[in-house]
Nucleic acid binder design. Structure first.
Lengths: 175, 175, 175, 175
DNA sequence: AATGAATGAGTCTTCATTCAT
DNA sequence: CATGAATGAAGACTCATTCAT
């Protein structure tokens, strides 16, 4: 969605008129599709979550083992983030925003729900004294984001950080 | 600063009139102290960064070894975060906001600059093949935040997550 | 333009909300057409200058001789001033105001530029030791304004002052 | 009065805080002497009118004949205007302003009232078919102002315009 | 009498939203 | 359905004025 660009730059303050222009439609047309600006933002949030989720799922299909599954998903996330800087920035803004409803947050998780369950179950089965799934999931997300930020600042070190980042996560998660 | 409360709830959309009321002064009085709303937010950002920084520094004084130094700082951060939920939320909002200037961001780091340098140097000296300081610092911050979020959701598990979180970080950082 | 009424009464202090009401539109609509209040005032200035200029030009077309040319222009100015008391007052306020840009002032002179040149050239050609054109032009304007003020205070004496005023100007200008 | 400077620059929009600073006193002190901003402006108006009036009166004392009387007054006005550009500009702004009360306008004329009466009576006595005193007075004022403006733009031509201006006025007024 | 911080009414301007075309 | 001019509620900011010191 074209709105991502504006949200990335201006956050919630992105003006509907500008969003409309970016999307190549007239000012009023936005409201043919979204009742309010908040509706638009919620839809954008769910869409973007769907995009990252889709990328991760694609990587997830190719898994061969537990560790490789996590790694494929990690790599897919990192690559999506690097190729979609603007969308990622928009998503970050939306994520902290109060205007995203609980329903949208739940909807945002839906695409990856079963994948996440599988990954976490498999991980728990393969380590001793596993940590709580929520904690692992949150750790995963936090560290991928850190990794993408590092690579964004030093693109030459992409492969290094992608690997290093994942290994850090794996150590953190598996003890 | 009283504005934290409003920023925590409403982000950048916090109304100056409301901030004034919260602070117990008249609407116009806000502008006796801050030229613009953005100035106020930048000042708030630096102040809050100073608070977390101060808390961490206090812990840092008590260190005995490298590991214990990191742990004291970790614990201080977590405790500050738990005791200052509103300020922490405000800080999160400000951190992602475009209205915080590079100068303010730099000023925000100032209080902990030398502590951070010491911690990172000591860590690098005590492990083999240390990771980049930036990566370690970012990992630290990301994982404390995750930890605080976990505890906020399950206060009973405070001690568990505080320990578990730090150990995750330590494994991630030390390889 | 409807704003003239408000400017005549309140000068630069005329409130945009009131101007909008006078114009029969909503408060915000003003800013669809003029980016700022100052833009509006500048546009009003140029428009009003155009109106007086147009009136003078109409009189100028009917000239037969140098003296009659000046007289027709004088009469047109006086009549416009008498019929458009409010616009004239607004113009006076705008004229002394610091918010009218040099560009607008230049634009205000444009409509009468060539007429003024012709009148001044013809006058210079028909008298001995002519005075400087700027001085004559300024004298003209000053004395028409005095004349209009006199007539406004004593409407019965309109014809008397219109004639008397012009003759005073003519004596002043021709020596 | 120090306020003249601010009024010259900013007109009625001159801020009381700035006026206070210019006058070298504290913000609130202004209101020890003037109940309101309008009161201050009215007082300033009367004071400034008194100053020009005083200058003209000084010239008036030295008169020897009717014509010379007018000329001395003219010269005094022109010189005051040239030496007091800022005060003159302030006076112009105040003159067109709606906040100057009829009382203040009357008070402004007081110092020169009897002088004006004498000059006008003498003029009327020495010419045939004299014009109305109001018209002559207004013509005088309008043309001195034009003259001062001309000299301000071309200071080298001071003596020329002072003479030329007065002669224009004299021709205009005496027919 | 002087100060200047505090006040809050007032104003410009923005922008999500509507609706006639 | 699309358009974009018009709307008007909302909000940041200004500044004359007050008043405790």
């Amino acid at each position: 969605m074209a709105a991502a660009e504006n949200v990335a730059t201006d956050g919630l303050a992105a003006r509907t008129a500008k969003i409309a222009t970016t999307a190549g439609v007239a000012e009023g047309t936005v409201f043919t599709y979204f009742a309010t600006k908040e509706t638009l933002f919620n839809a954008l949030y769910v869409t973007l979550k769907g995009e990252v989720g889709g990328a991760m799922l694609a990587g997830f299909q190719e898994r061969e083992s537990v560790l490789v599954g996590w790694q494929k998903v990690w790599d897919s996330y990192v690559e999506w983030g690097l190729c979609n800087g603007i969308k990622r920035k928009a998503l970050k803004q939306l994520h902290v925003s109060a205007c995203i409803t609980p329903d949208s947050r739940k909807a945002g998780l839906r695409p990856t729900k079963s994948m996440a369950a599988t990954l976490l179950k498999d991980l728990a089965a393969s380590v001793q004294r596993p940590q709580s799934p929520e904690f692992i999931a949150a750790t995963f997300e936090a560290l991928v984001e850190v990794t993408i930020d590092m690579i964004a600042k030093a693109p030459a070190a992409q492969e290094y950080y992608k690997r290093e980042g994942f290994e850090s996560f794996w150590r953190a998660a598996t003890r």
